[in-house]
Design a protein around this nucleic acid. Sequence first.
DNA 1: TAGACGTATCTCGACGTCAAGATATTCCGC
DNA 2: GCGGAATATCTTGACGTCGAGATACGTCTA
Lengths: 182, 182
Amino acid sequence: MVSREADAIDGILEAWARERPDLDVSALAVIGRLSRYAALVQVRLDRVFAEHGLQSWEFDVLSALRRSGAPYELTPGELDRALLITSGTTTHRIQRLEARGFVTRHRDEADRRIVRVRLTETGRAAHEATHDAHAANETRILAGLSGADRADLLSGLQALGRVLGDTADDAVHALSEGETPA
Amino acid sequence: MVSREADAIDGILEAWARERPDLDVSALAVIGRLSRYAALVQVRLDRVFAEHGLQSWEFDVLSALRRSGAPYELTPGELDRALLITSGTTTHRIQRLEARGFVTRHRDEADRRIVRVRLTETGRAAHEATHDAHAANETRILAGLSGADRADLLSGLQALGRVLGDTADDAVHALSEGETPA
DNA sequence: TAGACGTATCTCGACGTCAAGATATTCCGC
DNA sequence: GCGGAATATCTTGACGTCGAGATACGTCTA
């Protein structure tokens, strides 16, 4: 039996217990941790992206294109939905990736409303060069978890996903490993 | 034995399995969900805050002050650390809360480097009026989880917190229930 | 008690995101 | 084949955050 050190959320729960002992803080104990740890993990992921000259939003877009398979092409709308961002944000992201030479953009000939965003060889190389370090970083972050804790976390998150109504349709092509969706 | 519908992250894992079957995506299965679900939960929390005329960052600050106990006063530095934001952001937030009449600001007489940010009665009322609906919202979000799933999620997150080195010192006074830390 | 260092807060400019709406194109019913 | 609805993308303005540095104040040491 290990006596656990109190974490930051425990501190918050104790503060509420002092101030408002009548409150039920059991949901906060879960949701507060979810938010906080997602943010703390993101900081660690960003560090590795920065070492490779990328912003995490850049890696997210490159990843979505890469895993969509040859010819590594998606529409802005598909990117919107996969990355949980608005269309304005997508336009802006594509413009900057285009300026870096990571993607190209061309109109679909059959349906001229549609734009196709395609990963360039440069973009693919940038993703490739970053991906291994990023994957190792994720593995390292979770390396301290016991098998049981990790299984709990995964099954708990999967259950939460079901409750949130998250379905495969939304993100089939995208949502990178390092994502912080809006 | 229930056959589970694939969620959005499963779609991403399958895409990688198709494109790069050699990759180990088991860490992505955990961290991708953590990020994605934190974002999806935040959207639901924001909805309730909006119904009460608050931004979630406003609620976060008011909550931190409220749970710090009478006289509901913290320094900008304490808010920085508790809310995981930079000092510039804190200054900006306080200015806007001051403009809405939710907090006041005064220099500490003993140490004139220090500022004290204090919740006004108006600010306390705004927090009070929002808090119950927010807590009910959090409870509702988790209501669909079985007891076992919820216990898994909590213990998995607690273990992750230990791995991330999150300690009570950082957030004792703050970090609201609705927080999206930077 | 002067200077050097440390601490607390604020300022400034840049950036990424969103919401709302504008524009262009296609689809559908008649 | 015409007009209206639907779809896809882009534009614009506002906002929240960050990083780096500036300023003000306190502490310590010789």
